[in-house]
Design a protein around this nucleic acid. Sequence first.
DNA 1: ATTAGCACTCATTACAGGAGAGTGCTAACA
DNA 2: TGTTAGCACTCTCCTGTAATGAGTGCTAAT
Lengths: 352, 352
Amino acid sequence: MVWEKELNERKRTILKSIIDDYIKYAQPVGSRTIARKLELGLGSATIRNEMADLEELGYITQPYTSAGRIPSDKGYRFYVEHLMQLHSLAYEEMEKIQAAMSEQIEEINELIKKVSIIISNITGYTSFVLSPQLKKVTIKTIRLIYVDEKMLLLVVVANGGIVKDKIVKHQSNLDEDTVHRLSNFLNKVFSGKTVVELSEQNFLDIQLNLKVPKEAVKIILEAIEDCIRKIDTIDVYLDGVTNILNFPEFSDLLKAREILELLKEEEVVINLVKNPPPGSNLDYKIGSENELNELKELSVITTVYGSDGKNLGTFGVIGPTRMAYGKVVSSIKYIREVLNKELLKILGDDSL
Amino acid sequence: MVWEKELNERKRTILKSIIDDYIKYAQPVGSRTIARKLELGLGSATIRNEMADLEELGYITQPYTSAGRIPSDKGYRFYVEHLMQLHSLAYEEMEKIQAAMSEQIEEINELIKKVSIIISNITGYTSFVLSPQLKKVTIKTIRLIYVDEKMLLLVVVANGGIVKDKIVKHQSNLDEDTVHRLSNFLNKVFSGKTVVELSEQNFLDIQLNLKVPKEAVKIILEAIEDCIRKIDTIDVYLDGVTNILNFPEFSDLLKAREILELLKEEEVVINLVKNPPPGSNLDYKIGSENELNELKELSVITTVYGSDGKNLGTFGVIGPTRMAYGKVVSSIKYIREVLNKELLKILGDDSL
DNA sequence: ATTAGCACTCATTACAGGAGAGTGCTAACA
DNA sequence: TGTTAGCACTCTCCTGTAATGAGTGCTAAT
């Protein structure tokens, strides 16, 4: 670890104390408070001098002359990188997480949804989970099911147990047998394929080999494409959005509403997570480090999940910059651990 | 229409004027305002006398001595039943509705989702749409698809183009051929059936006829049951929840948060709609008429949708009691009309 | 290097007074 | 009898002022 020359041990202790206090009470914290709390045998005046230094260095600010200090974004950054303490979760919390995630582990998206609920539950902030985006969608099975003569059901099963289906309506009066043959053919052609190439070749093959009307083939291929696109799409699960309203920094209704509106957009959430710095698997975006103006007073903590080192997706927490970083990080780490184990159970060695 | 003896024409006019004004400005309205606005050649003192009567009758109240009047829930009820004017929608609004709902009409749930968005968009309040709850689920097709020797995909297609699928994991190492036979058998047994009876008989039949291990049969039947339950479950689509934050009556953050939390619960929304009075297809729950305490300051307008008189589901609007009832009702009526037409297109004569 | 002491700053609170909106009542009027 | 002008009264809201108090920065003493 690089020793930050500009902050000696005492300044660090004081900075940590200020931030801890501010996280807890959301009130500017003054020199007396710190002096009393730290029990270093230092008077408030000394602390005041140190605080003046910390302010000059940009770690804390004063909302107005002669108020206490509040941490700046730079202060928070230093805090998460050098100062914060991780507390291990309470036994009941671990229990809760385990319990919630191990029941009914059938579908991967169910699990992910649960994760988002449990995170917001444990942390009290807003949580988000992005479903796996498969680097390469491999089709395991593709099937057409005859419903009636103008309607088919297309089912695509991809790796990772992901299933998408789609009703296909057509005008070609296909009979049950034709559909069956078509289904087998498509399955043979596409299964195991990584990137689906809807080449003219395939197109013609189908028509020639199976004597299926052009119209139907076109619609079916489009449907397949559509399903694959859906499989490839990242799903966003949010929970605890209204928790934002709990924090005094968002008592401004308009501001709060703006944020809530914004978080509804899946794109926004997906973009929150972009450009994770390499090296660490935990990413912090603190206040002004966020790109969107509306989010400059929020912090986002993100991590990646996935069994044995494979990056499947991301999840994290959104809260005020004055977030209980220590608590959140410990929770995230623990939940990630459990999630990864569960995923391994569901997916097995199914390479994604 | 029953002529309410207790309110003569003039009182009605005044009441309507008060409510219209209050809906617009959310401010207690005084006698002078009304006198000026109505242009009946009446002085404010006369209006004052009438207002005193209206207050005594319970249609309006005073927030405090010598403030203007605000409508009571009873006032609003009289308003929606006798006074409010329906304005026909602006041409652009009708365009917008048509456009939004006629593109991409493949899946019924897609359509419903769009409806909820368009309602909140047009009205500026919170909208909800409940998906059809089928009185009787008829299975059109049931199919098992072989994925690998420990995994099947169950697909159930019900009437109304509703599809549910479920990955079924088992330990019985079924081969592709067995699955295929099983699939055909199940399809024969179940398709067309209204209520699926998972009788012992069926259970034994399958085992005897197809020599499939007991374990697998049990799991598969459970999965079928599960799919049918899912088909039968009402989906709730909400949109524009944060619109609630726009109204001054919910500037109290705690109250607002409470409501937002509440609306997240699907059950709550489903219960909003219970007990629609027979006769009309438009149902109003105004303020205190709602059962839940947290919703006593909200009004809920609900209607049913469904092609040719068949009640498929409900949708509606949630807003402050001071809702623009006229505007909302006209919007709801128009949207219902369009929705019903679209549903007819999608469902055809498929009897639900 | 530390700190006690002190003057100073600024948000917050409380309080008082005035303006304004609106009422209820009464007496006069058509 | 219904309507209305006039007036006293009520209550909120706004404004200004003063007091409070938390906290600072600086200086001089330790």
